[in-house]
Amino acid sequence: MALLEIDQIDVFYGDVQVVFGLSLHVEEGEVVSIIGGNGAGKSTLLRTISGLIQPRRGEIRFEGNPIQRLPPEEIVARGIVQVPEGRRLFSLMSVEDNLIVGAYNRRADEKKQQTIEEVYALFPRLRERTAQLAMTLSGGEQQMVAIGRGLMALPKILMLDEPSLGLAPLLIRDIFDTVRKIADQGTTVLMVEQDVRHSLSLSDRGYVLEHGRTAMEGPAQQLLDNPHIKTAYLGL
């Protein structure tokens, strides 16, 4: 049984359909990338999994149970945690408060002192900035807080929406290294990216999303070698 299983979902904004009969699955312990250009529907897919939008048709199962009708807080409580596109930190709250809010769900709340130490161990820079307001951080630091906040929820699966967006190349490398580290420590990762090369090279498998449909899927290395992906996404 897959940890997360998406079965033929259709998603609409009002009358406009943006996701068409999409299916995918993520096994426990995997790192899976979803790649695709702007407007392909990647964020919509993650928002749907998180329960911010409900699919009009199809089913989403987590640990075998349908979750597509659950509210976002219940989905987080089950262990599906999203780090949204553009970080979406609580701008006027301190770094520490942002992290603590990440541990809002009951399961995580009990262990938050321990988890925050783990987050600071992963991102030592944040420990020096605990009292600083999130809005005053650099882009790279903000992404660290966003990922740290996600980890505070004790995810069974961590979903990252374009973690490299807007970062300098050197920082992008750091962020992807961190994602790898998180995966190696046992967290399942579902990552949406436009940086195809980096994301696929640290993933086990990938899906290519085009106009709200899966255009291709397979082992990451196979996708990296694929001629269509080479021309369309890697500019080779």
């Binding site: 329960g51 911010l52 976002p72 987080v76 999203q82 949204p84 809002y104």
Partner: peptide, 9 residues
Amino acid sequence: DAASLQGIN
């Protein structure tokens, strides 16, 4: 929305 994603109802 960001608050919802932290599990806040």
